[in-house]
Nucleic acid binder design. Structure first.
Lengths: 330, 330
DNA sequence: GTGAAAGCGCTAACAA
DNA sequence: TTGTTAGCGCTTTCAC
């Protein structure tokens, strides 16, 4: 059991006080002779000394830790988001405390409470709720918070998200250009999730003045969604499906395959591809690709420059453009 | 700026010493009157008091934190592994400090160093190196460590992995039964990664006494892997491809698609599907599916029972069976 | 240019 | 059944 060495050992061995060692650790070289500086540097190296983070935190009240709360840990969108954050933090002193809400709102709350207990210096939040009340404990603490992927309304914290509304306008154009007469939007429960709502609203708004009908099917609220989908498609009008996220898109593809419903012949198909898999499937599916890595990176960069240089947090939404990749399906 | 309340405020307000409050916090009720117990409980609740973790850690030298080092954060295998760990930790006091080595061995080392600095109580490690030297800093500290997915040899820490060798034996049987004359194994660099080596060795061993040739192509070491693959396939013998992980499988499928090489007609195909996508692709691809969630959970459970109850860590490998799903491709 | 001493919020002997 | 006291490893004020 390797005895942990502390600042005291270093101070003793370097023949200086621990104050001086502490100054060295915190790079306060202004009033330090080159001699002591190098002496301390050498002893630290020779002992392989590493300061105790908890002790530092206890005193300074800054843990050099960024808390992250994600909605659901196990999907590729989240992984890439985390990768982006992780890259941004790489060359800093900050570390990441990642918590998974597993899509349970009570769990998100308890996770946030835990992050506060750990005295994290800032939080990157993919909110599960759209109600500011859920995040009151964060506002109270006056802690820097950045939202990713989604945001709470009224707007409480800055957010970095995809250009969901804008992309849906473009999809609407596409649907009109291809003379579809009906769009079936398939999603998980959209209420309260800004990204999903923006995707839906963008489409609805753009098609409001047209004769194109927009129908929403929320597959986790509707046990008979497959039946509904089939009956909608079988109407004698040109229909297109818009799947609001990757998971849902694959569900739809699976269903169409089993029912031998062909796209684009029987129905047009477009959706979000968060897994980079669309190009593997035949016939090719037109998709929208987001940039979660960049979203994570931007969010972390903003938070870091607030923490490190006291840069103010932007009050606005930052929108990272997604890309539409057209294939045969629509 | 909400003034943080401490154990002192609670003690004062409850008219007891902070020792007593501390006893309460640590559930040492043996010698505590019901009266003081409830009094403390109430004051804590009314103040919304939460003890400072850093102070506790500083004193007890136990951070109630489990460090995790993964090879690469952004793939579904890892996500599901983390989900499993996260679930196991859910109802405990432990938290997770997750670090991504991003497949860089120096980064893994510095991550582990950081985890040690944070005084993590134990580590779950998906090792990048097979050399125990890389992990000497862990052995020195006498810290409980559990490996997942892969392991270091000679065996240093317990490990929870898939039954890679065994599954390859079954694949070998399949290949013989289907009268293939050649197997082309496609992988990322296998040297030093136990999971990949076991998958390859299982197959080689099983086919050693047969006339079936086994060739290995490591796509990240071989710029011309596509050409090599094509030339091997074009020989006038029945060939099968075995892709050693999900990523590689999709690369191969993409390549076969662009070259219009048909499976199972031109070449048999089987591989690991870490993304649960194989059923979406036509023609159907036979795959091996791992249980990363269960691997993560088992690893975390073992570590937790060591930390919480001092249960000894098993010295052996724990193998979680994967499943073979047969479709048309082989 | 450097050091002594106090204290961050908590736990754990030891004492009562 | 409860309290006094010292101290975990560090930072910071103030003094020299």
């Amino acid at each position: 059991m390797n005895k942990k060495i502390t600042i005291n050992e270093i101070a003793k061995s370097a023949n200086v006080s621990k104050t001086t060692v502490s100054r060295f650790l915190n790079k306060k070289y202004e009033n330090m002779s080159e001699a002591t500086k190098t002496k301390i540097e050498e002893t630290i190296k020779s002992y392989g000394y590493q300061p105790n983070r908890q002790a530092q935190t206890l005193k300074t009240n800054s843990s050099l830790t960024i808390g992250i709360s994600v909605a659901d840990l196990s999907n590729l969108y989240t992984s890439r988001l985390l990768k982006g954050i992780s890259q941004a933090v790489l060359d800093t002193n900050y570390q990441l405390l990642i918590m998974d809400a597993d899509n349970h709102i009570e769990r998100e709350l308890s996770n946030l409470q835990m992050l506060l207990n750990e005295n994290v210096d800032g939080i990157i939040l993919q909110p599960l709720s759209h109600l500011p009340a859920q995040y009151q404990l964060l506002t109270e603490r006056n802690l820097p918070v950045i939202q990713v992927d989604r945001y709470v309304e009224p707007f409480t914290f800055p957010a970095v998200v995809s250009d969901n509304f804008q992309k849906s306008l473009e999809i609407a154009d596409l649907i009109q250009a291809k003379s579809y007469e009906q769009v079936i939007v398939i999603a998980n429960k959209i209420s309260g999730i800004s990204s999903r709502m923006n995707r839906f609203d963008g489409l609805s708004n753009a098609l409001f003045d047209t004769s194109i009908a927009v129908t929403l099917i929320e597959i986790d609220l509707d046990d008979a969604w497959q039946t509904h989908l089939t009956s909608l498609i079988q109407k004698n009008i040109r229909s297109a499906i818009f799947a609001l996220n990757g998971q849902v898109l694959w569900e739809v593809v699976r269903y169409l395959q089993t029912k031998h419903i062909q796209y684009p012949d029987d129905v047009g198909l477009i959706g979000y591809d968060d897994d980079n898999f669309a190009d593997l499937i035949q016939p090719g599916i037109s998709v929208i690709k987001q940039e979660p890595l960049q979203i994570g990176q931007s969010a972390a960069d903003q938070l870091l420059s607030n923490l490190q240089n006291n840069a103010p947090l932007s009050i606005e939404n930052m929108r990272i453009p997604a890309t539409i990749e057209l294939r045969e399906s629509i």
